[in-house]
Design a protein around this nucleic acid. Structure first.
Lengths: 351, 351
DNA sequence: ACTGGCTTTGGGAGCGCTCCCAAAACATTA
DNA sequence: TAATGTTTTGGGAGCGCTCCCAAAGCCAGT
């Protein structure tokens, strides 16, 4: 009969478990929540009944009483069109999901695609009893939202430094020094006319990576040439177009602010009849998996995207449990991954 | 003062709104839930107060009272390692998220990565008050879970036909006819030795796509040659290895059961010094975005992945609202996308 | 045996909503 | 005007948990 219920664990309540184990509701609650003030013998007895019945506390009831939902949100704004194109998002999501599992939070995923989604998202996110905290991918469309959500006292961690929201906690990768080392690497290899394809103007990583590029050149006593700086948009197609604009300036190396753009740029370069890396060398940014499958394999700056996601969740939980003041700021390191597209290595790496 | 609260909408309860608008809790509840039996004048009055205060009903309280969470889960089992490699998952997720937004459900994302995650996932998913229903990506590791979850009366829709769970509702793409038309296309182009690289053995799409391949050959009066059938695993690397095994059999065309494998196979082919499509032609399956960026651009079978996700959610909601019997079965069509890798078109498509 | 200090246990109240039923208000007819 | 039917409104109970406080049990120490 117990067996019967143990499969379903359906209409079991705390009260019922209390009855079955001959104690009170309160005591069972203490056992379930691993609180003190329960004698060993009683604890064992109750645990046995819980085990046999397969009892699970009702989450909504618990939420109502504690005013905690044990759910965190991940908001990926607007970039949705890019969501299935740019492998960055899946990897981030993966890290976030992993950490949520580990810390026993539920992950609510919110992809904001269309304009109307965007209008509807604030009320949805701020519904009472919905989220304990939220992770927001930075990008131009998220910023007002960040301020609004912070205003209602919801713990927020921004993934990627936000441009305007000064009070926000965020976590970011060291875009500046990543770009700096990518560019330095090209300089070290003897390239003379090093161009760059930037990300979409107006975003923090675009700015930081461009600054890193410039600084690396300046530090080596060179100046940067505006003709060698072209704006892209982080996508493959954007890299392709940008490279077509860049080619007349005769670059012998290009630092692209994303791997996808690097791949697009290499496509344009090949079509223009230039060899890679002999005529034009390339370094990307991200180290997404396509970097390795590109032809030639792409030298790039690795972002620790997955652990980035994990750290984001950890920071958010810190905010939830220890208060949102002061804002937390975390910057993670990048790493230069040398493959074939920069001309540093002639050797094919066999998988 | 109201303004003040409208920003936060914090400690507002139904009762409070009732007080402010001079009616009873019940009436406000009717207004909020758009139920009948409220006079127009009262409805207007209440809506005004709600607007001014920015009242939002407390979700946990509602859940507790109705025993509905308005949240659906998306479980991607084990494939997690593939989650950020294979663009299929992001696109699926995107469709699912979009539909959830539209129907005003919250999407809970569960990625099961490690073995231990897998052990912990059942209790997590079956927590009372957590989910109204769940979408499970089929694949060998999900199947026991499917049965377990169905047993506790949780509405389940399997994404991709499950091999064993006979009673489950599922939604799938027509893998058989997709493979059939891919193979037919290669036959039509005059290729004589058409090989195939299959997916991971033991999964439904692998089986169905292989059957479609065989049937297409047989229908044209040919027999299939076991030497031309090699097993892959849906990944780029798997396609690369598989092609190395296939090359000695001298295929002049290959149908790969995924785009990633096709891309890996093309890499192996190129390295072996063969031209594409002149020496070996390729057709993939999925039409993920890399197919278009491949060199040459990949002819492939397009799966409507995003609308697949949308339909999955719609089916699940149908199950939730109208009962889980009888099981729903939905098969969606595929489409042959002709690009350069099959040799049908010599023209470069400029973006 | 009696007191005072501990730990353990039980039960009431309350979280904010929905659902149901009864009461009130209104409209309609004889 | 009374009787009847219909629509609108209000309030109690309950969803299943947590939190708090008071009661009960236990163990010295006198």
């Amino acid at each position: 009969m117990l067996e019967n219920k143990s499969v379903a664990g359906l209409d079991l309540t705390l009260e019922e478990i209390a009855r079955l184990s001959g104690v009170s509701r309160s005591t069972v609650s203490r056992v379930v929540n691993q609180q003190p003030h329960v004698s060993e013998s009683v604890r064992k007895k109750v645990l046995k009944v819980i085990q046999e019945t397969g009892y699970q506390p009702h989450l909504a009831a618990r939420s109502l009483a504690t005013n905690r939902s044990w759910m965190v949100g991940l908001l990926l704004p607007r970039s949705v069109s890019g969501f299935f194109t740019d492998p960055y998002f899946p990897r981030l999501t993966q890290g976030v999901a992993q950490a949520c599992n580990q810390y026993d939070y539920t992950l609510g995923l919110f992809l904001v695609g269309t304009q109307e989604d965007e209008a509807k998202i604030l009320p949805r996110l701020s519904r009472k009893g919905m989220l304990d905290g939220i992770l927001i991918q930075s990008g131009q469309f998220g910023e007002q939202l960040i301020d609004r959500l912070m205003k209602i006292q919801l713990p927020v961690v921004v993934v990627g430094r936000p441009l305007h929201s000064a009070q926000a906690s965020y976590i970011d990768v060291d875009n500046f020094s990543g770009a700096y080392s990518a560019t330095s690497h090209l300089i070290r290899l003897g390239h003379q006319r090093i161009g760059t394809i930037t990300g979409l103007a107006g975003s923090a990583p675009t700015f930081d990576r461009l600054e890193g590029y410039k600084k690396a050149l300046i530090d080596r006593g060179r100046n940067y040439d505006p003709a060698l700086i072209v704006e892209g948009d982080f996508t493959e197609a954007g890299g392709y177009y940008a490279m077509q604009q860049l080619l007349p300036a005769k670059p012998d190396a290009v630092f692209a602010a994303s791997d996808l753009m690097a791949i697009g740029a290499m496509r344009a370069t090949r079509e223009a009849g230039c060899r890679i890396p002999e005529d034009v060398a390339f370094v990307g940014f991200d180290d997404v998996s396509v970097a390795m499958y590109a032809n030639p394999q792409l030298t790039t700056i690795r972002q620790p995207i997955t652990s980035f996601g994990i750290t984001a969740v950890e920071t958010l939980i810190d905010l939830i449990e220890n208060g949102i003041e002061p804002p937390r700021r975390i910057i993670m390191d990048t790493e230069l991954i040398i493959r074939d597209s920069c001309g540093a290595s002639r050797r094919r790496i066999d998988l």
